[in-house]
């Protein structure tokens, strides 16, 4: 493991990150920084390593080399639930919710208290939990559906529910993998509004293919290609970049 010891002012600092699967480098010597209160979007063609980067940050995939520092704490050494407890939330590409439980229970389980076995046994559904669940449900447009079994939500509502499940943990860094995939136009608009709202006080990393949506939300865009950064900067800048047009936007 490479020991990069210099601390940074960034919320998240990824340095020299490499992961290889049987010699294939899905992420190759990547450096990427996320500021506080920033919506940072990662785009790129299929197989560019976008989702892998998120997997590496949240501990689902172990890095071959390099460092990921969150508030100058090394994440590559931590286990998944420890990374979550540090304040990193991750939304999966397909809505990943508990279909057999109600919306309320889905949000309640994500409430950051009673996370040990005996903590869960002793967990009380008190006013604080109920208020917080109602507050988050209102944010993600599910206030009327708290008692509905999650399996019966529409696709877009499931995506919102999962975002809500992350919000209730109040993470400092929220990672969203294609949050608007499969959403209708109006749902996309609502989601863009939601993201702009929730970024107050936290940073958001988004992997997305929908350029219109990226334009609506991104503060900064990183274009990945073959595990490396192709271009980085504002949306206007990367859109004008001939390399980006060539490998990604052009076709």
């Amino acid at each position: 493991m490479n020991t990069v010891t210099n601390n940074t002012d960034f919320l998240l600092a990824i340095e020299n990150l490499t992961v290889s699967f049987d010699g294939f480098k899905a992420v190759n010597d990547l450096n990427l920084y996320v500021d506080e209160n920033e919506i940072h979007v990662i785009i790129g063609p299929n197989g560019a390593g976008k989702t892998t980067v998120l997997d590496l940050i949240c501990g689902r995939t172990k890095a071959t080399d390099g460092s990921i520092k969150f508030r100058n704490r090394e994440l590559t050494e931590m286990r998944e639930h420890e990374i979550v407890r540090e304040g990193v939330g991750r939304k999966f590409q397909n809505p990943s919710i508990y279909e057999d439980l109600t919306v309320f229970e889905n949000l309640e389980i994500s409430f950051p208290r009673g996370r040990s076995v005996f903590g869960a046994l002793a967990f009380k559904r008190d006013a604080e939990v109920i208020d917080r669940v109602h507050e988050i449900a209102a944010m993600v447009f599910l206030k009327e559906l708290l008692d509905t079994q999650a399996a019966f939500l529409s696709h877009g509502q499931k995506q919102w529910l999962e975002i809500g499940m992350l919000l209730i943990q109040d993470p400092e860094l929220l990672m969203l993998d294609e949050p608007v995939a499969g959403m209708s136009v109006s749902e996309r608009k609502q989601t863009a509004k939601l993201l702009n709202e929730i970024t107050k006080g936290r940073s958001v990393m988004v992997v997305e293919h929908d350029m219109k949506f990226v334009e609506d939300i991104a503060h900064r865009v990183t274009v990945l290609h073959q595990g490396k950064i192709l271009s980085e900067g504002s949306m206007a800048k990367v859109q004008a970049d001939p390399k980006v047009i060539d490998v990604y936007l052009g076709h």
Binding site: C58, R60, R79, E80, H81, V84, R85, G89, R90, F92, S96, I97, Y98, E99, D100, L101, E105, N106, E108, I109, S110, P112, G114, R115, S116, V117, A120, L121, A122, F123, E162, M165, Q169
Partner: peptide, 27 residues
Amino acid sequence: SKLGRLLVALRDKEDRVRFSGYDVANF
């Protein structure tokens, strides 16, 4: 208890429970 609901959640989406800050193996 919440543990009962967590069991159902585990059966359904183990990864989601893990990435909600729970040490799944302990449960």
